[in-house]
């Protein structure tokens, strides 16, 4: 950190990036607060879009470009759409639902405020004199991220693809209709009805007739 102290840093002379970070951070935090407190379920999902998009802008301000676009593609593009589909399929009420919050709301508020106070105090106390140098080349361009991902993180990357495949199969199995189980699929049914007489009555039915059929 001694290499970064040649530029004067101060609380009273913020740069444009810091101002933009604080403003977008305020918008993101407000959208997150509305997400967890609103009583309209669809509005909660739409405010979640604002919060996640604000986080993508924060990644851009931190010069992590690839993460920002991945955030926009996956979170704003697919996760929120999945959440909206889930809200529709569980027949969520459109208007204000009075029972969106449970009875232990004040206990949850106390826990969250205590955790926030402790975390903010510890973090500010620990990183009071630490500065991020945002000049120079971008720390998270696509070239840098791809090079580090495929040089140092290849094995976890492939394991992650297997995990995604397992999650896909698991989601399909979980969301399949359960009433398709008593009747077996037609391929297995034909195999059972054809193979069982050929096994039990092997001496009666000739082999070539089975093969011709």
């Amino acid at each position: 950190m001694t290499a970064m102290t040649q530029a004067p840093h101060g609380f009273l002379s913020p740069t444009g990036v810091e101002v933009a970070f604080l403003l977008v951070g305020l918008v993101t935090f407000g959208a997150a607060l509305v997400t967890v407190t609103t009583r309209q379920l669809v509005h909660a999902a739409l405010w979640l879009v604002v919060a996640l998009g604000g986080l993508a802008v924060e990644y851009l301000l931190l010069t992590a470009e690839f993460i920002a676009w991945v955030q926009v593609l996956i979170y704003v593009g697919s996760v929120v759409v999945l959440l909206l589909f889930g809200l529709m399929l569980t027949k969520a009420p459109i208007g204000r639902s009075p029972d969106a919050d449970s009875g232990n709301r004040w206990f949850a508020l106390a826990v969250a405020v205590c955790a926030a106070a402790a975390l903010v105090w510890v973090v500010v106390d620990a990183f009071r004199t630490t500065w991020i140098d945002l000049g120079g080349a971008a720390a998270g361009s696509t070239k840098v991220t791809g090079a580090s991902l495929f040089q140092n993180w290849v094995l976890p990357f492939e394991a992650l693809s297997v995990l995604l495949l397992a999650a896909l199969v698991g989601a399909i199995v979980l969301s399949r209709k359960a009433n398709a189980d008593p009747t077996p699929p037609p391929v297995n049914g034909r195999a059972v009805t054809q193979s069982s007489p050929s096994v039990t009555n092997r001496g009666i039915h000739p082999i070539e007739q089975e093969g011709a059929r």
């Binding site: 951070g25 935090f29 909660a44 924060e58 569980t90 969106a100 232990n104 926030a116 991020i132």
Partner: peptide, 29 residues
């Protein structure tokens, strides 16, 4: 940029999510 800025924002967002997990009643929320 001060390193405490993203750290504080992250802590606040985490506690917001913590409140939502504890206080919400619908599973999708």
């Amino acid at each position: 940029m001060h390193l405490a800025d993203p750290a504080v924002l992250s802590a606040l967002l985490f506690c917001t999510g913590l409140y939502g997990v504890l206080a919400r009643r619908n599973a999708i929320l």
